[in-house]
């Protein structure tokens, strides 16, 4: 490590070369990303699992597939609309990608020693991130369903809440890093924290893409003949290959109860 750059600048806190500290911190950031990735995967697995099972026909929000099974469930919403529109997910994801690009740009500028421009670009990234947060809030508050309207609503809302938390973290990091670039603490000789923030925001952008991808590809559940809650009604028809609107409606490999042989039929 130490012989790559001849006399390495030394971290004021621990007295080690900054590259050593940076390598350690970078590894820590990667591990933190693994943790957050696993958490995000938990949400996405939940989404896909509930989508594939459609227990008690409770996946779709009321208004799209209101069936007799739903009658003992929550009351249908007044608007009678259904799944969320796709485009807000992708617009917000695009905005996060812009933030990500600006952050990397700011890091490049810092490495080149261009402190003033780097600060300006960082400020621009903050503005975009805050605008994204507002847009995310707008999307949540205008969804055509509430938390209690079935599992699709639950899964989408929890994903979007995760997005909000991610954006808050991003805004905090951007505020800090831009302030530090402005103060000259992040400089040509020690630009690493700026890089870490960029790495983190890259992961956040990936998380947004994953979220937008599942919400816009998995909509109508492939299981259109789900088990009824608490009873043994003989099933009227075989589960048909998943229908209509969903562009990729292949049944999930996870076991759905309708696939198991039913002796009572």
């Amino acid at each position: 490590m130490s012989d790559t750059v001849n006399p390495a600048p030394v971290s004021p806190t621990t007295g080690e070369p900054v590259q050593v500290v940076a390598a350690r911190n970078r590894l820590g950031i990667y591990f933190l990303i693994v943790i957050d990735f696993m958490g995000t995967m938990a949400l996405i697995i939940s989404y896909a699992y509930l989508w594939s099972l459609n227990v008690n026909n409770g996946w779709a929000p009321p208004g799209s597939q209101f069936t007799a099974f739903m009658s003992n469930g929550p009351a249908p919403s007044a608007t009678g609309t259904s799944f969320a529109a796709d485009w807000p997910f992708w617009v917000i994801t695009f905005a996060v990608l812009v933030t990500c690009a600006l952050t990397w740009w700011s890091y490049r500028l810092t490495r080149r020693g261009d402190q003033a421009v780097a600060t300006a670009v960082g400020a621009a990234a903050i503005v975009v991130a805050i605008a994204t947060l507002v847009a995310q809030w707008w999307q949540i508050s205008t969804l055509p369903f509430g938390a209690a309207n079935g599992t699709y609503a639950s899964a989408v809302l929890i994903l979007l809440s995760g997005n909000i938390v991610h954006l808050l973290v991003v805004i905090f990091l951007l505020l800090g890093i831009t302030n530090r670039v402005r103060m000259g603490l992040i400089s040509r000789s020690n630009p690493w924290q700026s890089q870490f923030v960029s790495i983190w925001i890259t992961w956040i952008a990936i998380a947004f893409i994953l979220g937008a991808f599942v919400t816009s590809t998995m909509k109508v559940s492939p299981n259109d003949n789900p088990t009824r809650f608490g009873g043994f009604e003989p099933r009227t028809s075989q589960p048909s290959p998943a229908a209509s609107a969903s562009p990729s409606a292949s049944p999930s490999p996870s076991a759905s109860p309708s696939a198991s042989p039913s002796p009572s039929s």
């Binding site: 227990v55 088990t227 809650f229 109860p257 198991s260 042989p261 039913s262």
Partner: peptide, 9 residues
């Protein structure tokens, strides 16, 4: 399980 029927024999 609530919301699912399992079979055995």
């Amino acid at each position: 399980n609530p919301g699912a029927a399992t079979q055995t024999g």
